[in-house]
Structure formats: C-alpha cells, structure tokens
Design a protein around this nucleic acid. Structure first.
Length: 998
DNA sequence: GTCCGACCGTA
DNA sequence: TTACGGTCGGACG
C-alpha cells in the first residue's frame, strides 16, 4: 500500500443490522430463507467493486476488507460489566444471515476479518490509522456514529444505503462537534442501546454546547463547578466517573493485533464462476445476470454451490418467555388427531410428509374442505350410561369439542340448557366422516303453547347428575377441550362451579393465523374452511317477535343445531391447529392469546360497581341543560326540528340560513360534524355553538347516564362488560355491553360519569396506566436515538420533538409549538399524511407537508421504519408486532390508490398499536401470579382494561402493598422475552372512584 | 324488524 | 393520519 491507494473497510456487522431494518424483507423463494440483508450486501459490494467511481465516494478501491464482530465478549465487557448487557437477541430472520454474509464475502474473493476480544469497530480503527500513516486514503463503509471519531481529511465514511459520503463537515453538521471530539461527546451522552452510561440528562445538543465552551471532557470535568445551571452542574460532578468510564468504552482501539497486514488487503480479481455459484444458491437472479455479463460467463452452466445455513429458529416460532416452561395443551391430542382423523385418502396422497407441520396443515385443509355433514349421525343423550360412555371416549382419545346451549348471549345471565360434544374416533373409515357428535339436553321446557308450560321436558338427565360429570371432564387436564369462543362457555361454566382446564379456542387460533382477513365467528369460519353453511340460530329459535329462548326449542331440532356446532368446532380445530406450527405462530397463540382467556373471564365475572344515584342525578342535570339549549336552538333556527338529525340540521344551516363553509359527506349530505360546527361558531354564528353543546349533553345522557344503569346485574349489582379477544385487527381488546373503554374523560362534564364508577365499601380503585406507551414502542421499533434518549432521561417527549423540529428551547416553549409537535407525534403513529395533519392542525396542506419533511430529516429512522413496514406488507401481505403477532393486509396491493394508502397507514400503525397491546396482555397474564406470590392474590382484583390502563379493586389495607407490584409487573411486562431499548413507565393512583384514581 | 351512515365517546 | 362500540335518524322491506 502506498500514497494514492484507497482502502475500503466494510462494516459487515453494522451492515447486516442496518440492512435488516432499512431494506424490504426478502426470502429465498424455494424455502423461505430470509436473505434481505444478504441481497443488500451483495448488491452493495458489487456496486463498490465495479463502479465505486460513480457513487458519491468517487474513487475505485485498491484495497478492501469486510470486518465483522467476533462475538459479543470483548475487552469492553471487562471494563464495564453492563456493556451491551441489555442487547436483546437478534431478530430471528437475522440469525441465518450472519453466516451467509461471511460466505458471500468469501465468494467475492474478499478478506473477511474478525478478531477475538475486539469489536469490528476497533479493527476498522486499527486498519484506518495504519493506512493513513502510510499515506493512503480510507473509506469506511458504514454510517455508525461510533466510527465517526475516525474521520479525518484522509478518512471518510460512506453510507451505502443513502449513497452519501460522510466527511468532517458532515460530522460537525450532525453532532455539532468535529470528529476528534466525538469520543468526548459520546462519553457524555452515553448510549442506551449499548448501555454506555454517560451523564444522565445530557443529550447531544448539551454535550456539543459544553464541548464548545470547555474544549474537552477533562477540562469540563475539572472546571465543572463553574457551570451555571445548578442541576446540570450537580449531575456532571456526580457522574464524572461514569463519563470517564464511558469515554474508555466509546474510544476505539487502534492497536488490535491483526493477522493480515494492511498491505495484504489488496483487491484481488473476481472469480466469476465462484461468485455466480453463490448468487445462484441465494437465488438472486438479477445480480447473477449482471455478474455473468460482467465476467462474460454463462451462468446457466454454473451450478449453485452448496451453502450451509444456520436457521436458528424453532418450528413454532420464537419462544416468548425463556424462564417459563411452555404451557402445554394438546400435545398428545395433536398426535392422536394426526393418526386418526384425516381420511384415508388424504393420508395416502400425502405420504410421510404429512407429519411436517406445513404438509399436515395442507392435507387437513384439503380433507375437510368439503367433507359433508351427516346429521343423521348426531344423537341425543338422555341417560347417564350413554353420557358416561361418551365422556370415557373423550378421555380415551384425549380430545373433545364442546359447546353449551343457554338462555342468553350474556354469559353472566345465561342459564345452561344443554351441551353438545364431538369426538373423533380412532376408526378407519373411508366412506364418511370419522367425527361423531351428540347433544345432551338438560333443562329444556315443555312447549310454549302449553298453558301449563314451564315444566321440564321429559327424558332429560337431571342437572344434579349431569353437572358433576361435565365438571370432571372440563377440569380434567388430560383431555383437551376445544370450543369456539370459549370465553363465553368458560364464564358460564365458572358460574356453575366449573373451571375449564386444558383448552383450545378455534376462534382465537383463527385470530392468530388470519387477523385482518375477516371475521372469526363460527359461521364464517365454517363457510371458509369447511365449505358448509351452518344451521342458523334463528331457524331454530326464531327471530324477532317469535324469538324464544333455547330451553323452549324442541329437543330434536336442538340436537341438530347443537351437535352440528360441536362437529364444526372439532373440524375447524383439525384444520386450523396444525397451521399454527406450520406458520410459526404457536408461541403467539400460547403466550399472548390462550392464557388471557381465563384472565378476562375472571375480570368480567367480577364486574365493577356503578352508583346509580350519581348517574340518575347526572341524567336529570343533562336533561335540563339539553332542554334549555333546545329552546334557544329553535329560536335561533326560527323553527322546530329534530336536532339529532344531521340531515335536517344540514338543511337548516346550509339551506335555510345559507351559511358558507359547508362540506359534504361521501353520500352527498351536508356534513355537520363537530369540526364544521366549531368553524362556524368561530366565524361568529351562535346556532352551531349551541348545537355542539346540545350534542355533548345528549351524547353523555343517552350513551352513558341513561344506558349504564340498565347494565347493572340483578344479582351481583355490578356492571359486567364483555371483552372481545378477537375483534380488532391489531391485537387490542374491545369492550361491549357496555363498552367500558370509552367512558368520557376529556371534558369536565364527561368526567363526572367516571365518579359513578366506585370501589366497594372498604376498598379503593387503583388505576395504573402506561405513559406514552405507543411512542416508546415507536422509539424501540424504529430505533430513534433522540426518542430513546429522551425517554431514558425522562424528558417531555412532545417538547423534545418540538425543540428538535423548530429549534425552540424546551424551557419557556409556547404551548402552541408543543401542541403541534404532539399532533405530529401522534400522526407518525397513525401513518401520517399531509392531508390528515393539515386537517388535525387546521393548517395549509403545504405547511403540513413541510412539517413532515422536517420531521423525517430530524428523525430519518422514522421514514425508514415507515417505508419498511409498507414494503413488508406488500411483500409478505402482513406486518408483525414485536412479539410476532401477525396482522394481514390482503388489500395492500389494491389498484385503488386510496384503498392502498389506507392499508399502508394501517400497516404502519399496526405494529405500534399491536405491540403496545401485546405488552399489556403480557402484564395482565402475569398479574395474578405476581400478586399471589406476594400473598395478596385474592385481595387484589383486576377489573378493567382500557388499552393502556388497568383498573383494580383493592382492600384499603392492601393498597400500599399492591401498587408497586402492579407497577412493576406492567413496567417489566415485555421481559424476559424482549429487552426494550426504552424503559416503560407506569403511573398508578388509588381513590374511591375512577375519576379520582385516573 | 333490519341495515347503514353520521356522529362521537375512548386509547 | 390508527383502532374500536353505541346511539340516533332514516330508509328499506
């Protein structure tokens, strides 16, 4: 190597992480091997080797090496034990790519360098300084800030993904200090990702300012007493040692012992066939062609080389908790199922391969796709001997599908009328189904036409005999119970003293597999997977006026309906369960979905007390207020009309009164939404203001104060909502009848409703809510250093955003500036568009565009994140949460641009909203065991969940003990499955009503 | 009776 | 700009 030579040092380890997040996911066609980073790496290398001159580097390398980390154990770990301690395991798809990129490097005939005990950065530093000393030039192919300290007039960095060269001015522009001060700057700011402590509360801005003033870190520390700001002075003095330690951690070593001298890194000629053999193995068709053209080889005669792959992934997907044995349900029955239920034909056709999850799922789907339903095989069980036999058969096969028939859709009020079972026999039978099903009527009444009606129908097993047997079956952990929407049956049976154990829920399995592709109710699933439209409930029990409760349904008709439900449920399980393993979603189902079912059932069963007197008093006040407004509205309008009719109101405002500024809804009606009315009110019109006020009062009255008392349970005197586990696309829960997730909180008037939600006598309500959980998730998934740092430092996140974007200091910031930043932050989570933001902030579209542009400049990781989610949704048809929950977007490739844009925004939002939902799910699952371990499991009762908030009812004396446990479970909910890059924060408060606790 | 759109409450 | 559920009016049969 001599003066004028040019050494390229490629940061191989850095590239793979960066490429993984920045580039669209890509898998090898033949087997799904993830190869996105490998592809990016090969393309980048090829470009550098062939026409680096045309990139922003502008020169061709004479020497080149690719550098890797040897392992995570380095000398830094000896300096500081916690260094990189909170690094989580790399994403599953990355694992095989580490090895592949090394193999790619060798295929390119390039030296592949790693040294035990040192990071790639140290090796790069050593080579860079050596080359510089000889008089050569150096380009470090990386954009990692940790390498910026190496930049000199002769050493540049190159961000290959953005094709951007980084020199001294670029470092100064980005960090406010020249490269040689980067070490001091990083020593002060620390790095939460690598666990470099730094000085708390000092970010890059402050650090740069201090360095400008004091010159370097030592001087600063020596003269720290001169710092004017009291708080800052104190933390710097207190953390001087941490800063010195941090400096040693971030300072790169330039004395790494190297086997290959810098002269040996000379660029060799490419071996075309060798490279093509590798590229073909990776199935990179276009790069293979380009390489073949360049070296004038005939790619078609070159065989793909054998590339060993370390997959590093279990068939069931990631295990989400390492410290806990996997919950076992259905291991044995799965096998029983395989060997018996698939009709003989499907077995033969698929041969041995069917024992692989994917081919089993495939063959099951085909076997059941249109297997006919034979109702004549359904029986009614009316005697104990037959019932006992069926239960024995269920024990024998270890698997039974069941369904309850009741008098109500409300599991808290329903009475058990009968139950059905379906069993898969161990019989070889090629002529028909191998599933048999039966209905056990228990409390059917005599016909309702009977004047003496109400008596029990004849020939039913008495409840007192049947119930103990049903209990024994449902509580028997050696038998897997399968049901559709089991939470209903679980709660119902719990009220009869039965706690169902070892279960699967076909609705939840479908939800985990196919969220986003349609409903997960039994009827749609049956049509979709079994090609069968089930008997409609209303055809059995009637509808409308002639609707009867199930106990009045004729037992023969009931048998057809009920037994069919159990039959369908078992078939759905056969089809869906193997897909979990085939699609690597078992862990999501077993860790996030199934265990939540009993937790929610218990919450629903507990209910919450609402004070009916408070509500009725509020109703009176609201009625009065609304009546007064009505008079004024009619006077202003000059006529009486139905204020609640948007159609009539639109005619009055924009027709009769001829107000300007109206917009139309998509059906062509005048829009009278609150924002339209607010605009008119701001323009000086009285009527719209009154309408807005009237709407608020009547909304509160009709939706809350009038409706809630109707949900008070006659026996428990409490309100029992119902949570749906499977009705959102993102993994959130929903609440209905009543919806307790939309109780007002924003206005003072609305909050009064919350005062009616009270703790039982001698108890308090504790409300514990996550602070900014979605923005924290965003910081984590998109790797936004400023956000991560701000959360680590406990800084006001919206103010920080405003400060970054508008250059306004946090202290004394006008509230309007912060408000805008806040709207932008939320916009980002929602998949921002200039149109949406301009609406939200009532500003021009062009101004909103500028904001977004500036945001992306300030936080470039955000744009990368958004692009990568869109790309993933397009490539794979789904995106996923940090715990692997999958959300499908079948319409992401729609030719309709607005449909497509909508799906893209949703695909950006879903991983954020869904990851937050997964986190609180984990907290809920862990809550009862944690409280029990502390000895207060039976005295602290979780009642409600409102997306980022949990509400508990606790005996007065236990509040002090319970609160820190609740907070800790919530804050640590992601662990140990996942170490987040940002801390989670939970605020908790206790009071006698929900308003004061919140 | 049942369905749909408009509107509005929550995170 | 994301995700929900409930109430109302009004049109349909």
């Amino acid at each position: 190597m001599k003066k004028g030579d040019h050494l390229f040092l490629v940061d191989g380890s850095g590239f793979i992480f960066r490429a993984f997040h920045a580039l669209p996911p890509l898998t090898r066609k033949s087997d799904g091997l993830p190869v996105g980073a490998v592809s990016g790496f090969c393309n980048m290398l090829w470009k550098l080797l062939t026409d680096a001159r045309d990139t922003s580097v502008g020169v061709t390398p004479t020497h080149l090496a690719v550098i890797f980390d040897y392992s995570s154990k380095t000398f830094r770990k000896d300096l500081y034990d916690a260094y990189k301690a909170n690094r989580s395991a790399p994403p599953e798809e990355l694992i095989p790519q580490f090895g592949l990129i090394r193999q790619a490097t060798r295929a390119f005939n390039l030296p592949c360098i790693e040294v035990e005990g040192f990071e790639a950065d140290d090796i790069i530093a050593t080579y860079a300084r050596q080359a510089e000393a000889i008089g050569g030039d150096v380009t470090i192919v990386s954009s990692d800030k940790d390498l910026m300290q190496l930049v000199t007039p002769n050493v540049h960095m190159y961000d290959s993904m953005k094709d951007k060269q980084i020199g001294i001015p670029d470092v100064v522009e980005k960090w406010g200090v020249p490269p040689e001060k980067m070490i001091d700057l990083q020593a002060m700011t620390g790095d939460s990702v690598d666990n470099v402590p730094g000085i708390p509360g000092i970010g890059p801005k402050t650090a740069a300012q201090l360095l400008a003033e004091y010159g370097d870190l030592d001087t600063l520390l020596n003269r720290a007493t001169e710092i004017k700001q009291e708080k800052r002075r104190q933390t710097i003095i207190e953390n001087a040692d941490k800063a010195r330690l941090s400096r040693e951690l971030v300072r790169l070593r330039t004395d790494v012992p190297l086997e290959l001298a810098v002269q040996d890194l000379v660029l060799e000629k490419q071996d075309g066939p060798k490279l093509i053999g590798f590229l073909k193995a990776m199935q990179f068709t276009s790069l293979t062609r380009r390489v073949a053209d360049a070296c004038e080889c005939d790619a078609s005669v070159i065989d793909a080389v054998d590339v060993p792959v370390e997959w590093g992934a279990a068939a069931h997907g990631p295990d989400l908790d390492v410290d806990k044995p996997a919950p076992v349900a259905g291991g044995v029955p799965d096998i029983v199922g395989d060997s018996v239920q698939v009709p003989a034909k499907a077995k033969e056709a698929n041969g041995e391969g069917m024992f692989q999850p994917a081919s089993l799922a495939q063959s099951r789907a085909e076997a059941f796709a249109s297997l006919p339903f034979d109702h004549s095989r359904y029986i009614t069980i009316r005697d104990l001997a037959t019932l006992d036999q069926w239960i024995a058969d269920a024990r024998q096969t270890g698997l039974v599908a069941f369904d309850t028939e009741t008098t109500s859709l409300d599991a808290m009020q329903a009475e058990l009328v009968g139950f059905s079972m379906a069993i898969a026999d161990n019989a070889k039978n090629s002529t028909g189904t191998t599933i048999r099903a039966a209905y056990v009527p228990l409390t059917h009444k005599t016909g309702y036409g009977d004047l003496l009606g109400g008596g029990l129908a004849d020939n039913q097993i008495p409840m007192r005999d049947a119930l103990p047997r049903l209990k024994a079956l449902l509580e028997d952990a050696s038998v897997l119970k399968v049901a559709q929407n089991l939470k209903y049956d679980y709660l119902l049976m719990k009220r009869y003293g039965v706690e169902t154990r070892n279960f699967d829920d076909t609705m939840l399995i479908s939800y985990v597999l196919d969220a986003g592709t349609g409903a997960h109710g039994m009827d749609p699933l049956s049509e979709k997977f079994l090609g069968h439209k089930p008997i409609a409930y209303k055809d059995v029990a009637g509808s409308g006026k002639s609707n009867v409760t199930f106990d009045l349904v004729d037992i023969d008709r009931a048998t057809h309906y009920a037994a069919e439900d159990a039959d369908i449920t078992l078939r759905l399980w056969m089809v869906l369960k193997p897909r979990l393993a085939a699609e690597k979603l078992t862990a999501v189902y077993e860790r996030l979905e199934r265990p939540l079912l009993p937790v929610l059932a218990h919450m629903e069963e507990r209910g919450i007390t609402v004070d009916r007197q408070i509500l009725s008093r509020l109703s009176g006040e609201l009625a009065q207020g609304a009546a007064a407004l009505e008079d004024e509205i009619f006077k202003l309008a000059g006529e009486r009309f139905t204020i609640g009719s948007p159609k009539q109101l639109g005619d009055i405002l924009f027709g009769k009164m001829g107000l300007a500024g109206g917009t139309k809804t998509k059906t062509g009606q005048w829009s009278t939404s609150a924002s339209v009315l607010e605009d008119l009110a701001a323009a000086g019109f009285e009527l719209p203001r009154k309408i807005v006020d009237w709407r608020q009062l009547t909304k509160l009255k009709s939706t809350y104060t009038d409706a809630l008392p109707g949900y008070v349970h006659p026996q428990t005197k409490r309100v029992h909502t119902s949570y749906s586990l499977a009705s959102t696309t993102t993994g959130r829960l929903s609440s209905s009848e009543p919806n307790l997730q939309n109780i007002p909180v924003r206005t003072a008037e609305g909050r009064k409703i919350r005062t009616a939600f009270i703790a039982a006598p001698g108890h308090k309500l504790i409300s514990a809510d996550y602070s900014q959980i979605e923005l924290r998730v965003l910081a984590h998934v998109a790797h936004i250093p400023q956000l991560t740092q701000a959360f680590a430092d406990g800084i006001d996140i919206h103010a920080m955003t405003a400060s970054e974007m508008f250059g306004v200091p946090v202290e004394g910031m006008p509230s309007e500036v912060r408000r805008r930043a806040k709207a932008i932050n939320f916009g980002i989570i929602y998949g921002i568009s200039a149109f949406g933001l301009s609406n939200q902030l009532s500003i021009e579209r062009s101004e909103a565009s500028d904001y977004i542009k500036r945001y992306f400049e300030r936080f470039p990781g955000i744009r990368d994140y958004m692009d990568s989610r869109k790309q993933m949704a397009r490539d794979k048809g789904y995106v996923e949460t940090i715990f692997g929950r999958r959300i499908n977007y079948p319409e992401i490739r729609s030719s309709n641009p607005s449909v497509r844009a909508f799906n893209e925004r949703a695909a950006i939002n879903a991983p954020i909203q869904g990851s937050a939902a997964d986190i609180i799910r984990r907290a809920m699952i862990k809550m009862e065991p944690a409280l029990s371990e502390a000895g207060i499991g039976d005295r602290v009762r979780m009642l409600l969940q409102v997306h980022d908030e949990l509400i508990f009812e606790v005996e007065d004396a236990d509040v002090e003990k319970a609160t820190p446990i609740i907070v800790s479970v919530m804050e640590n909910a992601a662990m140990p499955a996942l170490e987040m890059r940002v801390p989670l924060k939970v605020d908790a408060r206790a009071a006698s009503n929900w308003d004061e606790a919140h």
